[in-house]
Design a protein around this nucleic acid. Sequence first.
DNA 1: TAGATTGTTAATCGATTAACAATC
DNA 2: TAGATTGTTAATCGATTAACAATC
Lengths: 220, 220
Amino acid sequence: MTAQVERRIPEGVIERLPLYLNVLIQLRSDGVATVSSARLGGLTDVNPAQIRRDLTHFGSFGQRGIGYDVISLIDRIQRILGSDHTHRLVLVGAGNLGSAIAGYNGLRKHGFIVSSILDVDPAKIGKRIGDVIVQPLDDLERVVAEQQISIGVIAVPPAAAQAVADQLAAAGIRVMLNYSPVIVKVPAGVTLHNTDPVQELLHTLYYLSRREDDTASSAL
Amino acid sequence: MTAQVERRIPEGVIERLPLYLNVLIQLRSDGVATVSSARLGGLTDVNPAQIRRDLTHFGSFGQRGIGYDVISLIDRIQRILGSDHTHRLVLVGAGNLGSAIAGYNGLRKHGFIVSSILDVDPAKIGKRIGDVIVQPLDDLERVVAEQQISIGVIAVPPAAAQAVADQLAAAGIRVMLNYSPVIVKVPAGVTLHNTDPVQELLHTLYYLSRREDDTASSAL
DNA sequence: TAGATTGTTAATCGATTAACAATC
DNA sequence: TAGATTGTTAATCGATTAACAATC
């Protein structure tokens, strides 16, 4: 309510906040009470001046001469991002990938709850993954409405991804995370994040081959 | 050898190449022969002028008045990235996440081969995942040397991630992809990519809550 | 008071985009 | 020749960084 609403926060700032948050949470669990922008910069590989500038978009959090209080900075960033309260998500796909996501403790740490797991495979329906029983995909619309689910996670084979995205959108889901290696189209108003690990690898590969040129290895 | 080496290619360019590649591969499988920067821009949400500018860092690929030949552009981008030949990777962790990664067909599509899968758990050693038999982690150094592995994928529980990264680095691995939700330190000269899906979700959350403010929902 | 570190301005840097001549 | 689209320059825009006065 007292939020210092600013005209337009650059995307880069919003992308770095989760990074700061991760490091701050680590610091907190190490018992660190105060952190300077210089130290935070060292831990995140972000320029200290940029950290300070990023934070001032939302107000003044620090104390001159002292630094930032770790606990209250975590609190502020969580409030900015909206991770100060829990978010329920529906996971579509109960295979290995779905199971891995459901068991991922990083989710709970940030207030995400795997509320439902759905699949079309009769062999998987009824199976228990973590605390959740796999339900038929047909239940999607009902489940989303009943459990106040705001986020959908797509963990199905590529061929099924688009159809699942369509169903999620139809059920009112406005944020999706797509784990399948295929380009999925979503209607305007829906945010889709792709987590394609191969994309990352390809990107890295470029630098790998550059470096190999330098060190001159002559494998065929 | 004939590569138009340029002083410095901006990181952003290298990040977008895999994106173009993905879309181009999709176009190729749809039987599309030629594509303009305008069309490619529509499919990737990248400004057409930027696509053209990005590509000129590496030479001239297009034909004025016509556009880009899909097949040869794929070929050029793959050569630039280094994904025109295969890359062997070692996967550490044979749990659900490891199994999901091993079965991920996006990897093969881009020439990545899961050459070995390692784990410390005696119950998993000897298990078959895809075409590969899970081996003890102790074999790491030997396996990397024998199979000319250049990439390591960390798919172990958070508590074990740093130790695995250290072992991979010691075995000579210079590119790592970390799937565990923990900050891992690597020595200089090693590239580490973190694939933390929660980081993505947190980022998205910001925009989600902004939108909710607009539409004014009053859940508790 | 002296030392440290923020918040903020101003300077720098680089990336994005518009525009258009070159050319298929 | 007319239409289309590239390659490339120049203009715009925004993000990063350095510097420093404010202040704990």
